[in-house]
């Protein structure tokens, strides 16, 4: 096992990289590299080995107080245990969905859960409108109420194929198949090179053997 395990205790929520590698598209080395990143992110404000919402916001926007609906939703989905923090295992499993080699099905499901703001199992027209308004609020794009309403209605009606007033998982899947660019943001090409970005751990484990 080498001296790595005896060096210092791992943070709360630390999980065996071999287990995480088996459950995700990452290799063991990549999981170890992600641990380097995790340690950095989880100690940026509170050094407790857990990523708090403010630390997540700080990393994304360089501003701990920057509120953003979508970043909030991503944090909530990463926080699988719903205890207000992201543990290492949660971090790796969730980032796995963003891996270029992760399944399209997982990416489609993740995006659906993200947009299902009130977690009813459906994306409703009100939720879609709320998200469009949030996007407009954070961008410099200005659209009239009429135009916003038209965009929301048109998109919603196209996605709600059975016309029951809500978008279910199957309708969402079909809509994404029609417009694949909708889940472009569910892939981070960077994750393929994660060991190059955080090589310190990998280098240190190689010399141990």
């Amino acid at each position: 096992m080498g001296c790595y395990h005896s060096k210092k205790p791992k943070s709360q929520g630390y999980e065996d990289p071999t287990v995480l590698a088996a459950e995700t598209p990452f290799t063991v080395s990549e999981v170890e590299a992600l641990y380097e990143l995790f340690k950095k992110l989880s100690s940026s404000i509170i050094n407790d080995g857990l990523i708090h919402r403010e630390e997540f916001q700080l990393a994304l926007f360089r501003n701990r107080n920057m509120k953003n609906l979508f970043a909030d939703r991503i944090f909530d989905l990463f926080d699988v245990k719903r205890n207000g923090v992201i543990e290492f295992g949660e971090f790796v499993r969730s980032l796995g969905i963003f891996h270029p080699n992760a399944s399209i099905k997982d990416k489609i499901t993740f995006a659906f859960r993200l947009y299902d703001l009130r977690q009813t199992g459906f994306i409703e027209q009100e939720e879609l409108k709320e998200m469009v308004l949030a996007l407009l609020h954070e961008s410099e794009l200005t659209l009239s109420d009429d135009v916003i309403e038209t965009i929301v209605e048109k998109t919603f009606n196209e996605a709600d194929m059975n016309g029951d007033g809500k978008i279910d998982q199957e309708e969402w899947r079909e809509f994404v198949m029609k417009y694949p660019s909708l889940i472009k943001n569910m892939t981070l090409p960077y994750l393929k090179d994660i060991t190059m970005a955080f090589p310190s751990f990998v280098a240190s484990t190689e010399v141990e053997d």
Partner: peptide, 25 residues
Amino acid sequence: KPVSMNAFELISRSPGFSLENLFER
């Protein structure tokens, strides 16, 4: 034309999805 925009396409471009920023050193 703005009315031809896909609402999901629009929201998918939010900076809130900039997870690549997590990797900036």
